[in-house]
Amino acid sequence: MLELTGVEIRYGNIRAVRDVSLTVGQGELITLIGSNGAGKTTTLRSISGLLRASAGRIMFEGEDITRAPTDRIVAMGISHCPEGRRIFGSLTVGENLRLGAVTRADRRAVAKDLGEVLEIFPVLEQRLGQAGGTLSGGEQQMLAIGRALMSRPRLLLLDEPSLGLAPLMVERIFATIAELKRQGLTILLVEQNVHHALDVADRAYVMETGRMSLEGPAHVLRRDPRVEQAYLGGGEVRA
């Protein structure tokens, strides 16, 4: 469904990501893990067109989207739920959700999807008229995911959904991710919470200083000594 080959991304003269290749198949939940600054977020941003790859190719459902503008990529069915949630704080929860579907013309279908999102995150329903900035961190994350779902994506890019959340809320978010996968949504998940990420994922990629260092089925990587030592060892997992 999604295929990156030899992608390189530069910030000015600095190569942030080099020779990254990954594939995401229909219905898969793929996780991209690695330490801070490894280039995971940069990779996601190049998929959604916020950054331009300086080399390599990005294909989505057989179409080359390496140079496509973000709005086209969104229209093609890729939804990017960014790191730090980035909800519109001065807009209401309802307006935030409406913005998720801002490119869709079919009002009836949008209304139906809104109902489904509110079913997944019932807490948002009570807060529809409230400014997004007044929500708690966990609620904001739910809103961000809900907003990303409002565009009815075929591929969901999730960047650090558990960042800065209380342990209980982390459990809830990962349960939701698992549920979305069960409903058939294809997901590319970037996480520092390697434990949880490997629990829900089918396959995983590990990035180190801008390159892919490992890849394989999630349950295999879980027991890979290199992963254990770097990301799972001694309970030093960032939650």
Partner: peptide
């Protein structure tokens, strides 16, 4: 209106607005 809403969103956070598919 959707366009007006897009404008407010873009004013608050341009790149997040782009991720909504808004044409800058």
């Amino acid at each position: 209106t959707n366009l007006g809403l897009s404008m407010r969103a873009a004013a608050e956070d341009l790149s997040a607005a782009q991720l909504m598919g808004i044409k800058v």
